[in-house]
Every structure is written in structure tokens, then in C-alpha cells.
Design a protein around this nucleic acid. Structure first.
Length: 569
RNA sequence: GCGCCUGUAGCUCAGUUGGAUAGAGCAUCGGAUUUCUAAUCCGGCGGUCGCGUGUUCGAGUCACGCCAGGCGCGCCA
């Protein structure tokens, strides 16, 4: 089943080739019309092409129209304005597509013709430190992208690049040996580890001892290695709880330490290839040939004292992933402040490999408090992710209780979990990820607007119709789209595939939330104007079918965002 | 000092890569309920898209220059 824009693009591009020749033709660029009065889709590529070829855009549009061949997808296209080609889908086409989507578990979304292998590197918390709000965006966005790409049929490998190595372990080990409180450790492992770190860090007289412990660890001392491993295990137990609450999982958790044995060879290799050279005692990769990076400082891969840095680990990680998985793309989901670093790593990769994978830094802005400054607790420390999720569930519970006090507590708690966690995720994913955003409980838990509760409630309303309708086999119905609201809703349902492709193309989950918000808006118009249960057959069944499909798209859409639906609120 | 990002309604944000008359939610004002869950829906008000110059059939979107804010700039990650 091909979607309308695919069919139209194909037809327009064929017409373009015959109008201006294959070597001059360009993409059709089919986009939704700005205003429905013009139609459903327009071909923006034709005007752009006319400009490039120095032709009159209107004349070219007319020429294309004359050459266009497609079946009954669209009414005869029209040319308006400067040379817009407008298409309006025929009701019969929409009806057919809706029927096909109804009988399709994938809701009309085809898998891609050429699946890619995509590695997604996200979350990456630091061992012995609590996950805080800074990790929430990476985790949620990375998980969402993984879900979308998988659904589209790509081979996705998710990897949690844990911060499990570094100078902090010297301090942790000395703290562990001398100041550990086992009871505290049992109750709140990460809290205790954090205390130990701070304690040692605050006591300068311990610095040399910490350094010595670090050296022992690096040289493979058995006792220190055991402590190090214990610290990782304890931390992972905590992280796992959070991932479970978030419904996030990974194919691999290969932390920085995994690449330790390779660092020396990587540096040697980069030296051998003349990609790295010594400068001021350190081993560096310079980018003189890169206009964007030539003036920046180099990428350091070995310090003057011989120690390695995160640039080294990143290069080793890259090599390892390429050798093992042969990916077509590697996606790094980290905050925007690391842009320069990744530009350098990517540039280094292009020096190292003739054809490296498509390397993408999917960066995101900072979560700000209502005061416009990075979100902090009252005492100025970063907000812990677990506390944030607790509060989300608590707030959701009180909202649910207010609305539906007679519901058993267990059920209300279940709903509150889905709503609370969903609200946090949705708030994050509905923002354009590249910019900072202001965190607000009241906005993310609002029943109005582009929020998780609104979306979940829309789903509940549809489910409620089905409960009232009794056992209904909506799938035996024939669709007929007579009311304008029905047709409008149906057309929007059919835009689900193109939306997912856009999300995957630009790594922008907020296009999916925007789509779902529009969908619920169209459903509202339908819900207000088109009675379902009171209608006579066959309208009743046809409308039930639209309801079913709407609910399925909402459910699938939220699922791809990592958000659960509930049956009642 | 150099570089990157951001600046859109009173507030919080969209804006599909150069397309038609710039959109939502909140706030504010007004309307709808013998209901399919009102945690709802519909409408009004609200804009010099930071400022300026340019590119062209067309600019919130591209280029250049200012202004303001954030972030980053060799041995942390």
C-alpha cells in the first residue's frame, strides 16, 4: 500500500522528466497544502525547479499537469498562484486506503524498502552518580527514535555508553575502603557513593592517596578492580529501576571501560596514519583542511602524561562499532554543548575511513526551571530523575483522584503511572529538541493542549464508545465518508506514514506529537458532529470503524513515543 | 577574542528545510451540556516573526551587518 504523497511524487517526477528531461528533473517535494481550500497536497518542487532552469513556474506547472498520469488518487490537479500544483484526494481513494489500513496491523505504514543498520547511542549516565534531569532527554529521545526506526523496518542497535571509567574512581575507591557505610549503601547505593565521592573530593589531603588507588586500578590491581566492579553493579541496579519505570531497554550497555584495552592501539593507529601528531606534549588530531574546524583547538587523544581522554574513547568506540556492526548510521543523542566535540570526532572519522557511516549528533537543549535557569532543586542541586518521576506520579494521582474518586486506589495508581510518566516524556518529546525548554508541571499535566493526558484522554473517549457499543466487530463494516468531518479525519489518519518518515529523516519526535495533536483535534470535530452509536446502519458501523482506527493510531503513535495508553481515566 | 545555538502573540512553544492570508495551548472575553466521559467543544481578542540591508516571482526560513541572551573554546566528560 503506497501512501498518497508517494504516489503523487512518483507521478509528478515522471511528468517532470518528460517535461524537462531526466537530467534536469528534480524531486517533486509533495507537501500538505497550507490551506485546505487549495487541496490536500501541493508539489513544491516544481516551482523550485522552474527557478533553477530559468523557466516560467506557471508554464512549467501547466506542462507537468498535462503530462501527469495517475489513477483516481486525486481529482484533476489545479495550478494556482505563482505555480502551485494542487491535488485533492478523491473520496474513493481515501475510502480504499482507510479500508486497507483497517485490515493492517501496521495501520498502513509500510516497512522501508532498504533497511539500514542504525546504532543509537543514548542515555549514558555516569556510574556512582544519580541520573538527573539532564539524562532524561537523552534517554527519552533516544528511545523514541529507536522505536520509530524499528517500526519502519530498520535494524536498530541501541547502546548505553555508560560513564564507568575515569579519574573519579580513585576517589571512590579510597572512599569505599576507608569511609564506607554499609547500611547506607544498602538503602541508597548511589546516594552513599555520591557521599563518598564528595567527601574525598572535599578533603585535599586524600588527593595523593586517591591518585595512587587510581593507578592501581589502571594497572589491574585485583582488589581495586573488584571494588570498581561492585560500584558499577550497584549503580546499574539503580539505573535499571529507572529504565524499568520509563519502559526503556538497551541491546548493549558497553561503557567506556569496555574500550579501555583498545585505546593504546587506536592512538598508535592514528599516529601511524599521520592523522594525529604531538603538540605541546599531547597527542592531537588537527583539522587544518576543514574550514569549519581549522581555527578550533584540536581533538586530544592522549594527554602529556600518557593518559587517554574521552576523545580517545570516542574514536575507539567508533572503530569498534564499525568493525562489529557495520552500521549505515550512528546516532549520538547528547546535549547541545557537545556539538563541537562531535563535529571533531566526525571529522576525524572522515579522515580515518574512506566511507564512514552517516554520523549524526542528535543534540538537545537544557531543561530550564520557571526562572529560565537550568532546572535545580531549592537547594541548588540538580533534580534527580527518580524524584522527578515520583513527583510526576504523585501529581497525576491527585489529578486522577479528583476526577474519579470512586475508582479503587490500585487502579488510580496504575493510571497515574501511565499519565505521570507519559506527561514527562510527552513534554520533552513535543518540544523541538534543539532548543532549551521551560519545565512546568501544570503545563505537562494539563488536559488541554498538546499534552500526554489530553492524548490519553482522547483515547479513553474512543474506548468508551466501544464499551457502550458492546462487543463490536468494526472490521466487518464498509467505510463511507460522507460528512466533511469524517473525510477530514480519514485523510489525517492516512498521513501517519509520511509523518513517521519525517520523524526518522530529521530525528524530530515533535513532528509525531504534532501529528497526534492534530489527529485528536480532527477526532474532536468528528465526535461533535457525527454521532456514532445513535446513527443508523451502515453509518454506525462505518463510524465505529473510524473510531477504531483513530484509537489504533493514537495507541501506536504514543507507543512509538514510549507512552502507554489506558482504558479509562 | 573566536565559534556554535537561540530571539515568533502578555506567557510557554510549533512552524516539514524558500511557498499562498504566520499557528496552537495558557491567560483574557463570549458561547455550547435532557451527552458517545465537560479532564470536553466552538468562537472573539491578541504579531513590524529582535533590528537593518540584501538575494527573488515569493523570506519567520537563505546571505551579510548590528543588538540581546545561552553555551563552548588542549590535556574533565
Amino acid at each position: 500500500m503506497s501512501s498518497a504523497p508517494d504516489i503523487l511524487a512518483d507521478a509528478v517526477e515522471r511528468a517532470l522528466r518528460s517535461a524537462v528531461g531526466a537530467e534536469n528533473a528534480g524531486p517533486a517535494i509533495i507537501r500538505p497544502c497550507a490551506d485546505p481550500k487549495f487541496g490536500d497536497y501541493q508539489a513544491n518542487g516544481v516551482m523550485a525547479l522552474a527557478k533553477r532552469l530559468g523557466q516560467n513556474p506557471r508554464a512549467l506547472a501547466e506542462k507537468v499537469i498535462a503530462e501527469l498520469q495517475f489513477s483516481d488518487v486525486s481529482e484533476p490537479p489545479t495550478v494556482t498562484g505563482a505555480g502551485f500544483i494542487n491535488f485533492r484526494l478523491t473520496p474513493s481513494f481515501v475510502t480504499r486506503q482507510i479500508a486497507a489500513a483497517t485490515n493492517d496491523e501496521r495501520l498502513g505504514v509500510p516497512t522501508v524498502a532498504q533497511p539500514k543498520t542504525v546504532v543509537i547511542d543514548f542515555s549514558s549516565p555516569n556510574v556512582a552518580k544519580p541520573m538527573h534531569v539532564g539524562h532524561v532527554r537523552s534517554t527519552i529521545i533516544g528511545d523514541c527514535l529507536a522505536r520509530v526506526l524499528r517500526f519502519l523496518g530498520h535494524r536498530v542497535i541501541t547502546d548505553n555508553h555508560l560513564g564507568d571509567w575515569g579519574t573519579q574512581f580513585g576517589m571512590l575507591i579510597i572512599g569505599w575502603k576507608r569511609f564506607r557505610n554499609d547500611e547506607a549503601l544498602q538503602q541508597d547505593a548511589i546516594g552513599e557513593l555520591e557521599r563518598l565521592y564528595k567527601y574525598v573530593n572535599d578533603h585535599k589531603e586524600l588527593r595523593d592517596d586517591a591518585k595512587a588507588e587510581l593507578v592501581k586500578l589502571q594497572q589491574g590491581d585485583a582488589e581495586n578492580h573488584e571494588i570498581w566492579q561492585k560500584i558499577i553493579d550497584l549503580s546499574m541496579q539503580e539505573f535499571s529501576k529507572t529504565y524499568q519505570r520509563l519502559g526503556v531497554s538497551f541491546d548493549h550497555t558497553l561503557g567506556e571501560s569496555f574500550y579501555n584495552p583498545m585505546l593504546k592501539d587506536v592512538v598508535e593507529e592514528l599516529k601511524r596514519l599521520n592523522l594525529a601528531r604531538e603538540s605541546e606534549g599531547a597527542m592531537c588530531i588537527f583539522f587544518e583542511d576543514n574550514p569549519e574546524l581549522k581555527k578550533t583547538s584540536p581533538l586530544l587523544i592522549q594527554k602529556a602524561d600518557g593518559a587517554f581522554l574521552y576523545g580517545t574513547t570516542d574514536m575507539a568506540t567508533l572503530k569498534c562499532r564499525i568493525d562489529q556492526w557495520h552500521p549505515d548510521e550512528i546516532v549520538y543523542v547528547t546535549d547541545a554543548r557537545q556539538q563541537l566535540h562531535f563535529k571533531q570526532v566526525f571529522a576525524a572519522a572522515r579522515k580515518w575511513w574512506e566511507k564512514p557511516p552517516d554520523l549524526r549528533h542528535v543534540y538537545f537543549g537544557t531543561i530550564l526551571g520557571e526562572d529560565g535557569k537550568p532546572l535545580k532543586t531549592r537547594d541548588g542541586t540538580p533534580v534527580k530523575l527518580a524524584d522527578l518521576l515520583d513527583e510526576a506520579e504523585e501529581r497525576a494521582l491527585s489529578v486522577v483522584t479528583e476526577k474519579n474518586p470512586t475508582l479503587p486506589l490500585v487502579e488510580r495508581q496504575q493510571i497515574a503511572r501511565a499519565v505521570g510518566i507519559g506527561a514527562v516524556k510527552y513534554a520533552d518529546l513535543s518540544q523541538n529538541r534543539t532548543t532549551d525548554y521551560v519545565f512546568s508541571w501544570s503545563k505537562m499535566l494539563a488536559m488541554n493542549g498538546n499534552t500526554a493526558p489530553y492524548m490519553q484522554y482522547a483515547y479513553v473517549r474512543v474506548q468508551s464508545i466501544f464499551r457502550k457499543a458492546g462487543a463490536t466487530k468494526a472490521d466487518i463494516a464498509t467505510v463511507s465518508l460522507e460528512h466533511a468531518a469524517e473525510l477530514d479525519l480519514a485523510k489525517h489518519i492516512l498521513r501517519f506514514p509520511e509523518t513517521l518518515h519525517a520523524v526518522a529523516e530529521d530525528d524530530k519526535p515533535n513532528w509525531l506529537t504534532g501529528y497526534l495533536y492534530d489527529l485528536t483535534g480532527k477526532f474532536s470535530a468528528f465526535y461533535e458532529n457525527c454521532p456514532v452509536l445513535q446513527s443508523a446502519e451502515p453509518t454506525r458501523s462505518s463510524r465505529l470503524l473510524l473510531c477504531r482506527l483513530t484509537a489504533d493510531v493514537i495507541k501506536r503513535g504514543l507507543n512509538l513515543l514510549g507512552i502507554e495508553v489506558i482504558e479509562q481515566m
